[in-house]
Amino acid sequence: MIEVLSNSALATIQDGGRHGYYRDGVSRSGAMDGVAVAVGNALLGNDRDAAGIEIPMLPFSVRFDTGLDIALTGADCAAHLDDVALQPDWAIRVHASQVLKLSAPKSGCRAYLCVGGGVDVPTVLGSRSTQLREGFGGHEGRMLQKGDRLAARRTESVLPEGGMGAMPVAALMPELGQGANVTVRVLPAAEYELFRPEAHDALWSGDWAVTPQSNRAGYRLAGPELQLITPIELRSHGVVPGVIQVPPGGQPIIQLADAATMGGYPKIGTVIEADLWRLAQARPGEKLNFQQVSYEDALAARHELDRCLASIEAMAMRVRAAAKGWSR
């Protein structure tokens, strides 16, 4: 079992997301940085979508009361297992009574704690993710609290002595953009043509600051004002994670994992699915740049990310098998 020691709010159990219930008004939920969870699961030999703990507010600490395989991925937050520093993107066997402590992140803003087999909570509507607004899924449908106890679905170890890690995914993928800003790829959306030409220029060339009013539901951005040619009123329509809405006032909102499934603001663009994990690690104050791509580019990017994750999974499996052979 894992016992939550800190009172740090906002930590939730998340997996690959609750897909297929948009028609019922159930948003996707799931890990904001799905790549970090997939990497943790790859190191542990779990299913890609096994449930982990998303930790957006640090410090955070847990105590283990059984031996357990764990992986810590996502934001690099100077983690320590008892007094020993834990490497970033690392999987290791922990022992009973060991304490894992995460401190303020050096980079990124969401850490993920994955465990052997995934966190053992009931599956609701096909997912173990916490559906915060509706209060179901995850652990009792809520954020984790001090004293909560969680079980892993596998306790035997598959890891080599000393553990193993993954190369940073950003280093395995072609570089996006330049400089300190976070670049994500964006498709023009349905109402794109209803915005003024200056708004188009601003979208593609502007620096878009992530404001503190940003969370799992969406990121509010600050930047140049995006103006419509003429004001329009839209009926509410389906909205998916990644959609960039522009409310009156012209400051865009990117809808994310816990966003409502419907909305009526005009949509100027959509961050492609393959880049949503990059947004998840952008901190308030960091600036985004949007790079225009086509639908075909978006599909190719998704396939590329899938291939990258599949290669981490395959190599992790080979290294685990080889280490097992050498230790005999």
Binding site: Q87, M315, A316
Partner: peptide, 18 residues
Amino acid sequence: AGGIVGFIQNDAVLLPIV
């Protein structure tokens, strides 16, 4: 003792040198 003194990179995966 028990400290990591380097890493072995095997494609996307790292092993510690302890």
